[in-house]
């Protein structure tokens, strides 16, 4: 039981880390540009597909990862230049519809190019083993690598946002974009940078999960909605909020799905517990979101003075 708990806790951390990588870009784009980008999830999907594709060409995991990273960054830049920058000044309804159109297109395009059947990427030799946590209890090295890389990226992001000039501008932008623009900063360049970087982070998440999740059309959609929950919990525009929100959602969702039956068995019969546990555990994070919002409508780490 306690061994299983540790494994599930690690799985929860892994989900949390992935959510953080996606939510980070999303929350910055929200915070700085006040832009709702539904198409952020397709960057995640694209990252996974591109990693599979480049692995097919090169047969080398690390090269494939790097190529896929560059490709998602470029794709983010392309989307920003061709479409998104025309939408920053529009209201949320416009942004929502246009980015929804992009999702429809890209999900279908992926299906057309790579087929509807799930693909997968082999785990690289170097990371293929598993680590014994306790006697008879092993945990895959690769999953540790995912968690580790998420924490590294999180720390790096935190340092960039809090200790560099760009980060200062990003924070100022989340606080008051017209002001930053009035200071003579090329806000267009800042937007492009934040956007492309966020797209690459989501792509990175997709690349990392390609060996452990199935790579299929639409795989970014449900993750995107979870990332929304993360942002709402953490507070729009806050990297710290995205980080803690993501870990909270990842861990609670995973533990809920694993242990809800056991938890319910304390109160009701096993049969009843089995019947209602799946429904209850899939509600769990949304209920937590509602509770947090009821107490703190701006999320756990609100960006002070933010309007809209």
């Amino acid at each position: 039981m306690s061994g299983l708990f540790i494994v599930q806790l690690l799985n929860g951390l892994q989900l949390g880390v992935l959510l953080f990588l996606i939510a980070a870009g999303l929350t910055l784009v929200f915070g700085v540009m006040n832009f709702i980008n539904l198409a952020h999830g397709v960057q995640y999907m694209l990252g996974a597909y591109l990693a599979v594709m480049f692995y097919g060409y090169t047969g080398h995991f690390l090269v494939a990862v790097l190529l896929a990273l560059v490709a998602t960054l470029l794709f983010g830049l392309l989307l920003e230049t061709v479409i998104f920058r025309r939408l920053y000044a529009r209201d949320h309804l416009d942004q929502l519809l246009a980015t929804f159109g992009i999702i429809l297109f890209l999900n279908e395009a992926v299906k057309t190019v790579w087929g509807a059947a799930p693909l997968s990427l082999p785990i690289p030799e170097l990371l293929s083993g598993s680590v014994p946590l306790a006697p008879g209890l092993n945990y895959p090295v690769y999953r540790f690598a995912i968690i580790g890389s998420g924490f590294v990226v999180g720390a790096a992001l935190y340092a960039v946002v809090n200790h560099t000039r760009i980060g200062m501008l990003i924070r100022a932008g989340a606080h008051n974009a017209p002001m930053v623009s009035a200071l003579g900063v090329d806000i267009g360049r800042l937007f492009m940078l934040v956007f492309a970087f966020g797209a690459m982070l989501a792509g990175f998440a997709g690349i990392m999960v390609a060996p452990v999740f199935s790579v299929e059309p639409g795989m970014g959609d449900s993750v995107l909605i979870l990332a929304f929950v993360v942002i709402v919990i953490g507070g729009i525009g806050s990297i710290r909020g995205a980080f803690f929100g993501a870990l909270l959602v990842g861990v609670i969702d995973t533990l809920g799905r694993s242990f809800m039956v056991d938890l319910l068995r304390i109160g009701v019969s096993t049969g009843q517990a089995r019947a209602v546990a799946p429904a209850l555990s899939s509600m769990l994070i949304y209920v937590i979101m509602a509770v947090i919002l009821a107490m703190r409508p701006e999320g756990l780490f609100p960006v002070k003075g933010r309007q809209g």
Partner: peptide, 27 residues
């Protein structure tokens, strides 16, 4: 209680909750 982007995301999230709950009703 929320507005703008928050409202959009929260309504989306609750709808997704309903989706998963219905999908988990094995009975």
């Amino acid at each position: 209680r929320t507005r703008g982007v928050y409202f959009i995301m929260i309504t989306l999230a609750f709808a997704q909750m309903a989706f998963y709950v219905m999908g988990s009703l094995s009975a």
